[in-house]
Design a protein around this nucleic acid. Structure first.
Length: 594
RNA sequence: GUACCCGUAGCUCAGCUGGAUAGAGCGUUACCCUCCGAAGGUAAAGGUCGCAGGUUCGAAUCCUGUCGGGUACGCCA
């Protein structure tokens, strides 16, 4: 990344030149004040109304108060500095102090070289310098196959991870396995009943308790169990088979989960087992650390709101964590009143484990139903790391599945839910992934099985893929007319012909790709990527249609190879950005629409 | 009762750390294929950004209050 002076942030060379000029001008007024650290707050962007100019900056208004200089005075000074630069055509000051900048077309042409040279690396800004970060996602209980909710979690986590890598993090994609506790016991018991069924016993439906699992997959699991162990558990006491069945079912379920993730193209770097944390006595370490900080005490939890009846509520002393000290709304139990660990103790142990493995930055992706969990988790990480580690928690809303415009009802208990596998089988990996990250994580998604596979603007992924396919089509046409394309020649071609507004609009959009990736990564908001790619596709399709009216703007001029090569440079740059964006989303580009 | 999230065009949603006249798609209306893929494109119509205050050069964005909707809340996992 080119670095000019001390105010360095944005990766792109020519943008940085402008930023440097702005700050150089500002420094005349700054005296001893350090203003460089505020560079990120200064906008250098394309104005909403493109007739104002190619670019604008709010620098003068932003610094006016701090420097005690009228914004228009600052603006004038910045303008003068900018106009000394030979790639800038003109500047103008508007409104309260906006500076609009017009640049030569060569300014934008620079980006083509940049993109064609760096390819996928174009969007990489190494602002985190290899720092490690842990992204925990999915972490589904190994009690059944993944369902639609997990799909959103999985895709969000994987795209977020890809984005974080783009800004220079070394990312660990991690899955936390809740492989102990009552739910696993219930799973094993459910499995046993189905197993007996296979061996000929008659099991009535009411043999399954409310907390047990009776989906079809338990029958399959029982089949596997029988294949492996035959009838060796029949007429045995629970204590003799339960542990074996627990391990068996967790292992099988995890295999199943891994296969499901594979369907979405997701591979985890690490799986951490809750049971293993307990074996390693990490919860005891948690206790030690917290006690030393004075963050634990024996006490009673306050009576919950809405329960007045003494029969329903009994105060019992137990070990508590002072999470209120760190912003939680109440202190949280570490041990139950019988002295055993709570689930939260295990979770704290897990996060202590991550801290001990060296992560000072962590991201966790959870369903919105975990909103009450956020503060205590942050509190735990803060206390356990002595404030040195930070955890970001992203909650995602539910996905509403629709068939014929009507919601499909789901009930997990009966096993009547749409599995991730069903969705991928029905619409494919790419559509599933696209739909799952096309909206802000705080917004519910309506997933309509019919609409998402339509080939129209109702289906934005199609629109993007279509742009990509058209580019590939043009490149095929080129090869037919002129033979194989020489990339070197394309890169070195004269970009002067690229001067139409439609061409420049597309190119301007491409110029902001690294910045869009950077800001999406920093905000951990993957949905900005599909939004941006739609914008690219939009300007591409517009340019395509311009060529229909004006033959001179077609990409391929059969009798002018030189100009054709120049035009193809823009197309290839567009192709690279689309490919890169789709890769971040984990979607396979289609060189041809079927 | 408390906490978190949502409320933007008829519908589904963008709107990034506050920036200029709030943007797309669908739907509606009128156009564009002798032409690299029309599965596209162009244009029109459509909004007191839930409501009321506040902060300031400037608010859909930040703060306070309020209304409507969703979710969570015990020693479960």
């Amino acid at each position: 990344m080119p670095q000019h002076g001390s105010c360095v942030f944005y990766g792109i060379f020519v943008f940085q030149i402008i930023r440097d000029l702005i700050f150089k001008a500002l420094k005349q007024f700054a005296g001893s004040q350090d203003i460089c650290h505020l560079e990120e707050s200064v906008l250098l962007d394309i104005p909403t109304d493109r007739s104002f100019g190619d670019l604008y900056t709010n620098a003068a208004m932003f610094f006016a108060k701090q420097l005690g200089v009228a914004p228009r005075v600052l603006a004038a000074s910045i303008s003068i500095a900018l106009e000394e630069c030979d790639i800038i055509l003109s500047t103008s000051i508007a409104g309260p102090g906006f500076i609009n900048i017009n640049v030569k077309n060569e300014f934008w042409h620079e980006f083509i070289d940049e993109i064609l040279t760096k390819k996928g690396g174009y969007s990489e800004t190494n602002i985190k310098h290899g720092e490690t970060i842990n992204v925990e996602f999915v972490s589904a209980n190994p009690t059944g196959p993944l369902h639609t909710g997990h799909a959103r979690n999985a895709v969000f986590g994987s795209v977020a991870s890809n984005l974080l890598e783009k800004i220079g993090y070394t990312v660990t994609r991690e899955f936390y396995i809740n492989d102990q506790g009552n739910q696993i016991k219930a799973l094993a018991k459910s499995l046993y009943l189905r197993y007996l069924e296979i061996l000929g016993s008659d099991i009535p439906d009411d043999a399954f308790g409310d907390d047990m699992y009776c989906g079809e997959y338990i029958k399959d699991l029982a089949g596997c169990l029988f294949e492996t162990y035959n009838d060796s558990f029949i007429n045995k006491k629970e204590s003799e088979y339960l542990d074996i069945l627990k391990e068996f079912s967790v292992n099988k379920m995890m295999e199943n989960i891994k296969e499901d993730l594979e369907l979405l193209g997701i591979t985890m770097d690490k799986y951490t087992s809750e049971a293993d944390l307990f074996k390693r006595k990490i919860p005891d370490e948690v206790m030690e650390i917290l006690s030393e900080r004075g963050d634990t005490y024996e006490g009673v939890l306050p009576r919950p709101k809405g329960i007045d009846d003494d029969d329903e509520w009994e105060e019992r002393p137990q070990t508590l964590f002072r999470s209120m000290k760190y912003g939680d709304s109440m202190d949280r139990a570490i041990r139950k009143s019988d002295g055993t660990w709570t689930y939260f103790a295990g979770d704290m142990a897990y996060h202590l484990d991550k801290i001990k493995r060296g992560y000072s930055k962590m991201v966790t992706v959870l369903g919105a139903d975990h909103s009450g969990y956020v503060k205590r988790l942050k509190a735990a990480v803060h206390a356990l790391s002595d404030g040195t580690a930070d955890i970001e928690i992203r909650l995602y809303q539910l996905v509403n599945f629709l068939e014929n415009g009507k919601p499909i009802r789901m009930s997990k208990r009966s096993g009547n839910f749409i599995s991730l596998r069903d969705v991928v089988d029905k619409v494919g990996k790419d559509v599933t992934r696209y739909m799952m990250i096309s909206r802000h994580h705080d917004v519910m998604i309506d997933f309509d099985f019919e609409k998402v596979i339509e080939c129209s603007m109702d289906n934005p992924l199609f629109y993007i893929q279509y742009a990509y396919a058209r580019i590939c089509s043009v490149l095929r046409h080129y090869a037919n007319s002129f033979g194989a394309l020489n990339e070197e020649e394309v890169r070195n071609s004269d970009k002067g012909v690229l001067s139409d507004v439609a061409e420049l609009n597309l190119l301007k959009t491409l110029s902001f790709w690294p910045e869009r990736v950077r800001s999406a990564a920093l905000a951990i908001e993957p949905h900005r990527i599909p939004g941006y790619l739609q914008e690219v596709a939009y300007y591409f399709h517009a340019l395509w249609n311009v060529g229909k009216k004006n033959a001179e703007l077609r990409f391929i001029s059969p009798d002018n190879r030189t100009e054709t090569i120049s035009r193809l440079s823009l197309l290839m740059a567009t192709k690279i950005v689309l490919e890169d964006g789709l890769k971040i989303m984990g979607i396979t580009p289609m060189s041809e629409m079927k």
